[in-house]
Design a protein around this nucleic acid. Sequence first.
DNA 1: CGACCTGTTGATGTCCCTCAAAGGGGGTGG
DNA 2: CCACCCCCTTTGAGGGACATCAACAGGTCG
Lengths: 239, 239
Amino acid sequence: MNPCASCALRKYELFVPMTEAELAFMKDFRDGEYRLEAGEVLFHEGDETDYFYTVWTGQGARYKHLANGDRQLVNFFFPGDLVGLQALLCDGSQTTAIAASPMILCRFRKANLHDLFRENPARAYDLTWLAAIEEHFLGETIVTLGQRTAAQRLAWALLRIEARLKAVGLMRGSAAFFPFRQRDLADALGLSLVHTNKTLGRLRAYATWEGDLLRVINADMLADIAMVNRERPAVRPLL
Amino acid sequence: MNPCASCALRKYELFVPMTEAELAFMKDFRDGEYRLEAGEVLFHEGDETDYFYTVWTGQGARYKHLANGDRQLVNFFFPGDLVGLQALLCDGSQTTAIAASPMILCRFRKANLHDLFRENPARAYDLTWLAAIEEHFLGETIVTLGQRTAAQRLAWALLRIEARLKAVGLMRGSAAFFPFRQRDLADALGLSLVHTNKTLGRLRAYATWEGDLLRVINADMLADIAMVNRERPAVRPLL
DNA sequence: CGACCTGTTGATGTCCCTCAAAGGGGGTGG
DNA sequence: CCACCCCCTTTGAGGGACATCAACAGGTCG
């Protein structure tokens, strides 16, 4: 029984298909699962870890605290995302990773990384590919934080999050399951909670977010507001 | 005559040393140099490129334009930095890369990337390592844009830039050579040019930036203002 | 000499932050 | 089964940090 071969994520178009041989390799490279409850921490700022992960189920986020107690959320992570690779390669995590819902992660040992590169260059390439994709998203985030107004930031974020969730089938009816609070989104976008709330109110004709359900009503309008081109997420590997 | 073996950058502590064999390999993997004058563009938003690069000499930046004409600088690049890897892996660049001074870049062919992973896993690992380091810096930038005030942003940036320049010997006397304009720094930090100028004025007791020369006078004070721990740049590979 | 770029400074406006408080839902304990 | 509390959302009021507009000075180049 190969958990990688039977992984439900692989059916989604978001991910590049894998061969039988690749799936067999990943099964051995994988070092079991790691389970988290909502609110639990995967690693803390300053931790030296021996593992990195990919998200199998659930959602979480990575953030950093400043000396004055402010918090900046660096990114959310969704099924298929890599977590903790820089913590490994940049000796020591500078961020904290936390689960926002129950999560299951596939775990990989740092000690096996060199073997991966030596024995399966194609998978190593995919790992680099994933790192580059993450880097690309962080670049987009920088553009947003640097140049967009509150309404533009929110439109941008809601659009992006909903598309990503849809791509991995995280739907409850016609809405996407998004288990975060307004506080989290505010900290991700560099806005105050109050202003985030008020601005969400003004966008309510185009997108709603009630409880854990995010519903995009008028994506074109949101894209207009955010000044982005609406594009489906690029195809990417899944370790 | 091996340009990688004689590369003047390798003497700096910032970079992990390479063996003779590795240097010989890199010489073959390298696909010549690419030279730019100040102001010239390496690649444009939307370009599909066949190359990626590392900076040998000179400095530049990568930025993105929004529909309204605003510009956000995503990162600066300095000698030893990787440029254009995501453009390759995320099909198509979303950013423009431009030289701020005359530059020489070492060029690598996209077509050879798979060979790199197959034939030299250790170098492939280094490539991923570099990507992770870049990702780490982008994360820091996100924290800064999201949470820090104008003075904090500038203190953070001046500190970081000066440390990076020092690490590759880009000194003119006791100051670092930094060929950008206030407009560039403003666009990097998400501030207006005017406010950047005024805030730089208020920091002038701790750091000066006149012409192309950046001089940090009181790094401890800047670190205090920026709420960062002063740390030397982590050691990293140099392709 | 004039055009242009960069840096500098002042005046005015506004977006967003901070402070404050109230309402709803879920959980817990009496 | 209700009282109470905590967390989250929502709304209003006031203030501040930063953007925008405008103008000038110095240096460089044609």
